[in-house]
Amino acid sequence: MWTWNNLWHWAGHPLSWPGFVGMLVGAVVILLLALLVVMYSIYWQRKFIGWMQWRIGPNRVGPWGLFQTVADVLKLLVKEDVIPANVDRTLFLLAPIFAFVPAFLVLSIIPFSAHHVFTANIGIGALFYVAISAITIHGVMLGGWSSNNKWALIGGMRSAAQMLSYEVPLGMSIVGVVLMAGTLNLNGIIAAQMHTVWYVIPQILGFIVFVIAGTAEMNRTPFDLPDAESELVGGYHVEYSGFRFAFFMLTEYVYLLAMGGLMATLFFGGWAGPFLPGWLWFAIKIFIFFTFQFWLQATLPRIRQDQMMSFSWKLLLPLALANLVITAVVKVLV
């Protein structure tokens, strides 16, 4: 028996046409939401960093430059699609898709509000995120490899090494939260935090590991080695232009959104908060995460490849493991 209810709670029911349409609508809405957020997060990045550097940032297109990123995106979309002569054509065309599809996929489990209106309420949410986001590495690596460009190759190689080695502490830091909440379901984790405190307090060690590993995972400053502009002149996407480049760009910022959502969910109680509606709380928490990332970007120099690797394996991973052990022990004792 079909009711309006199983349009939004389709996971527990057999697939039906209205349910399928509902999924499609949900996916499109999330896609548009992500695009909008990406556009204005880039705008906010340029404004915020500009203010810290005594500049005023974008100010020409639209009032206060509000349409600057829209114009940039339009420019990228209508640009000539250049495919260099000696690239591995198939992989070159596939790489942006490999990078960008998982970025949108992980959004499907982020609980933007108390009810999973447009996203999926699956039981293994946290695991799903880590698993799907790992696919992006292939896109970046293939992009670097297939470009037939030495800079892109080094960028892709660095990127693979970096994302692989930071995946591990990232996953380990999430396990601490999962242990405390007793569930992998993201909404379940939020619910568990509503009974106690935000997990950022008991899981402070895990939180620090998560933020550092997450920053590295997103290739953001100070871990922006794969596209280190002053060394690799752009890194893995140096040969890409037009909308293929836009895909890589989009991937980067959608991950920023997803990682912000994941962090808010795991450590800051997600959509939960007094007075304001849930989606607004979620937006505020993600906004703060964005601002923090841009703040780092404005301040810090880039870390070196070998230092970055040893930092992950020799410091972050032991920290994450220690956090895991402490959490487990405390959980058993209390």
């Binding site: 203010w51 810290m52 005594w54 500049r55 301040t299």
Partner: peptide, 12 residues
């Protein structure tokens, strides 16, 4: 240092 520069007068 960087955050304290936010309210500074812009030079553009």
């Amino acid at each position: 240092v960087t955050i304290s520069q936010l309210p500074k007068k812009k030079v553009t």
